[in-house]
Design a binder for these strands. Structure first.
Lengths: 195, 195
DNA sequence: TTCATAAACTAACAATTGTTAGTTTTGAGC
DNA sequence: GCTCAAAACTAACAATTGTTAGTTTATGAA
């Protein structure tokens, strides 16, 4: 079955590239670097992909769409704001644990996308942030969240979730469920002991 | 006074480079890009700096040392853990507001430093994190912080502070003092309304 | 005006970049 | 063992990279 083999090889290129991009950034990784990590020559990569740019856009858009689909599910649910926020935290932990390398490019290499993928990515990102913002606003209106500045609440929580890929493994023997519990507490209830 | 003029020109190069590196990353910015933004030719840059690498290490190490000096002051103080955490938040907001562009390289381009600057940077960073960790531990031991996982508390707070440069300006008419107050509340007390 | 030097310039370099063209090797199904 | 396509290879390309050498221009002090 050749078709399957090709797709496997393409996925290998995407996975290895994700790792390299995460370590040094898209621009600092050459096609020869990727090829060497695969144990082949640079020109051979083009049997499986059309360009370096294609590798980047697959890495970024695949994981961006995972976040979008997860958020859409949460928005459509009947939960109150706090339950929705907890589900967003679960979403980020799960996507991070399963796609840790891709998150490097998602966070730091998106600006090297070209059109039309760049505009598409920016649209997904701003829609994601807007959905998040409305949930925070809802929480304030419901009286479940403190009446603080919405942007500060939104980006404080989102920043931690977005950079989770950089440090989650430092909890040795990462227990995903336990990490979710801890993060819900820290991000939503705070760290200061209540009297 | 020629000496002063040269230093001014060098600072201009550093500042313009910080902006460009923040937008596209160190590797994607060429010496010709920097020169064009200065209105001169690439070769002329070398009247003021010795290499592209020198630009990067000045940008990163200057701001890294600001964080280190700020943290050292906090560690030496007589405050309890919560006051120390509040001072760390103040430190980050102040350094961010005054060095917003440099923080891009600090976060995303440090791996392009060469030795011995790379090792020096990594030493500063791990010392900073260790100081932060000890303050969190102290808070737990004092009974002022929730007895949660220390790494999760540490990196949740630190992640938000480190990426503040990406979003602080979204609060239109950024009032630094107000931002400090909001962040102390969100990061330490949480967003969920207490009964 | 003269002079010194800071700071710009032009021209070039060797290395590296992403990519293409054309060729050979590999391996599964007959 | 033959066939054929997938997937590797070699060789080369034009463009861009950081940097150097040597030269000209601009400016402030004498």
């Amino acid at each position: 079955m050749k078709r399957v083999k090709t797709e496997n090889r393409k996925e290998e290129i995407i996975n290895i590239s994700s790792k390299l991009f995460k370590e040094k950034g898209y621009s600092a990784v050459s096609m020869r670097d990727i090829a060497q990590a695969m144990g082949i020559k640079a020109a051979s990569l083009y049997n499986h992909i059309t360009s370096k740019q294609e590798i980047l856009s697959i890495i970024i858009l695949d994981v961006a769409e995972k976040f979008t689909r997860g958020m859409d599910r949460i928005v459509e649910s009947e939960d109150n704001a706090i339950d929705k926020l907890e589900k967003i935290i679960e979403l980020h932990v799960n996507v991070t644990v399963n796609n840790a390398d891709a998150l490097g490019s998602l966070n730091n290499d998106w600006m090297h996308l070209v059109e039309p993928q760049l505009s598409y990515f920016l649209k997904l990102r701003s829609q994601y942030e807007e959905n998040f913002r409305q949930i925070v606003k809802l929480g304030v209106d419901e009286g479940h969240l403190e009446p603080l500045n919405v942007e500060v609440m939104l980006f404080s929580i989102l920043s931690t979730l977005r950079t989770l890929y950089l440090w989650y493994y430092k909890k040795e023997g990462v227990d995903t469920a336990e990490l979710v519990v801890q993060m819900k507490t820290v991000l939503l209830r705070g760290v200061v002991l209540k009297p």
